[in-house]
Design a protein around this nucleic acid. Structure first.
Lengths: 351, 351
DNA sequence: TTGTAGGCGTTATCAG
DNA sequence: CTGATAACGCCTACAA
């Protein structure tokens, strides 16, 4: 009898477990895969043997036999930012509930994106891929398709691909309509594009326009500032807005981080939120509640779950046509917009 | 004939290539693995068939047969920082020269570290692992050993593991000795620990002590500031040092980023480098040359190469005892230390 | 309910 | 130098 190849520790195989449990290998396999008709007694014996030997099925053998590796990848930008963390957490949880393994690729810089996508597709040990807020370009798409990799987009969309997207236009619409209803007429937009590595407005501009149009208000382009997903960006944008001859009375920032930066700028200019300037953010990060920031809450958990579910469906190969799910966020009204709200303070805390 | 399992595209197998080339599968395999005795004519035929069919060996089948997956992982913190980028670049290059694939895990936060290490060891599709500036704890080490994964440390050391380490104490010694030789007697140390997720001094303090001891100088603990690897940290440390009653005349920062931050603080205080305060950094990042920063250059490329080589040796399983390689950096004298140096300026550029 | 055999795609061995 | 052939470890028919 030979030692299991180099892998280090001589491998425990399904045969060993079968021998130990006094059953055939097929039975062990059935137990492992919760597969069906195994008597309770046998199952227990097998499980015991399994534990005693510390058996772990060989991924390679399994992959060869099944034609699938049982491993998926998730490509996520900016691991540190709330939205991505939340989505990824949901993805991890949902994946854990399946028999798939997840490998996470964190993309903090543009260059890494290419590298990660390349290495993921070239290697050939992934069945499927989830990308968050990243839509691969045509070349990447071709490579992915050629390698037989199933791709599902989370917070992004492409006509030929399955994906979960968020109706950011609708979220922006809710936010801006809220401000309009509070009587604001000059509402600034501090934008954020779709692609996390860009600058620009993205679909939030559309919601902004729609909310204004509903109220028969014109869009004043001097109130539109494109930025990126950061506090500093929000601060700068706000500083610019404050120099305007005719200042806005409210601002919708396309991310909470930007909203927080904007509020800093507002306070430094000696103005008050919401009395002088109402502020609404987007994402509902943890700090938002603490700061009383009115914002739009996104269904991050649902997005992650559905993303995994769609990928599982793609892997099962049942359906051919891509499925695209569209989700909506909800407005969370707090102090910074100056809207009507009920604050539940314990009576003792009142001054 | 059945379609290759779900993988998507029906798989081209080695048999197909063999058929197309009119040879046996074994021969194709030999060609693919540059294995030896194949006639030039046959080799060409096989390669042609290979190209025409776009054949890619199945990783799973190969892994099963060989007992090794041919994939290694590299766990690297702070992908954006010069030192890690350089080491990783070398690792990638060295890996490309072998028949191994590399999967990179970027660790930007403490929590990710655990996750990455866990997923990497649990999954079982990696033959080996390289960690940069990260020494796994005992529990992690056990898990790694148990999974038969070969581990090699880059810029870190452990008695039981192979690894390449840098003699940071020696690098610090060179830097501080340089300052001592220039006549400085009050030399501050802005420290940096070994573990990128800590705060502290690390081995650089030892080199600092040694250089001072050589010159019979005492260590003044008020000149020792612990910090982390960032510009801001260096700035703060320097601001503190500048408030001292008896100011230092020179400072050795344990990273260039910290040195740059320190220089900013010095200039903001209205002082000049190197006239009022000499500065030496560590790492030789690109900016260092631009700023004329005297610093210690580390053999990043060599570290990456050797790391990969050590891992390959471990995988080959030839040697049992861990091999540990110790490397040294070199001092690069530029303007900020005020040392004697020759600047090669084109004559025309002189004022 | 359970054991057995065949084969997934590759590579190593053994004849020729 | 090259072609068959037998594993690698697992899963899934098929047979019992």
């Amino acid at each position: 009898m030979q030692l299991g190849a180099s892998g280090g520790i001589s491998r425990v195989t399904i045969q060993d477990v079968a021998g130990r449990a006094g059953v055939g290998a097929g039975t062990v396999s059935r137990v492992l895969n919760a597969n069906a008709n195994v008597s309770e007694r046998t199952r227990r014996r097998v499980e015991a043997a399994n534990d005693e030997l510390g058996y772990k099925p060989d991924v390679a053998a399994r992959a060869l036999r099944r034609g699938r590796t049982g491993t998926i990848g998730a490509v996520v930008p900016f691991f540190t930012k709330h939205f991505y963390v939340e989505v990824l957490r949901a993805v991890a949880r949902a994946t854990a509930a399946t028999d798939l393994s997840l490998i996470v690729f964190d993309i903090e810089r543009r260059e890494e994106r290419e590298r990660a996508l390349g290495q993921v597709t070239a290697h050939g040990f992934l069945d499927g891929l989830l990308t968050v807020s990243l839509v691969p370009n045509d070349a990447e798409l071709r490579a992915i398709a050629a390698s037989g990799l199933q791709l599902v987009l989370i917070d992004g969309s492409h006509p030929a691909l399955s994906g979960v997207e968020v109706d950011h236009a609708h979220g922006a619409y809710l936010a801006v309509r809220h401000l309009v209803q509070l009587g604001h007429r000059r509402i600034a937009l501090i934008g954020r594009p779709d692609d996390p590595f860009e600058r620009g407005f993205g679909p939030r501009l559309e919601g902004y326009r729609r909310a204004l149009a509903d109220a028969n208000l014109d869009v004043d382009s001097s109130l539109l500032i494109a930025g990126e997903y950061s506090r500093e960006s929000g601060r700068q944008a706000m500083e610019g807005l404050l120099t305007l001859a005719e200042r806005p009375t409210a601002v919708f920032a396309a991310s909470d981080l930007q909203a927080i930066g904007a509020m800093e700028a507002i306070r430094e200019a000696g103005l008050r939120v919401p009395e002088d300037l109402a502020v609404v953010g987007y994402n509902d990060i943890e700090l938002a509640e603490y700061l009383g920031l009115t914002t739009v809450r996104l269904p991050t958990a649902t997005m992650g779950e559905i993303g995994v579910r769609l990928l599982c469906e793609s892997l099962a190969g049942d359906q051919v046509t891509p499925r695209r799910v569209r989700l909506r966020g909800e407005l969370v009204v707090r102090r910074t917009s100056g809207g009507p709200l009920v604050v539940d303070l314990p009576p003792g805390d009142l001054p």
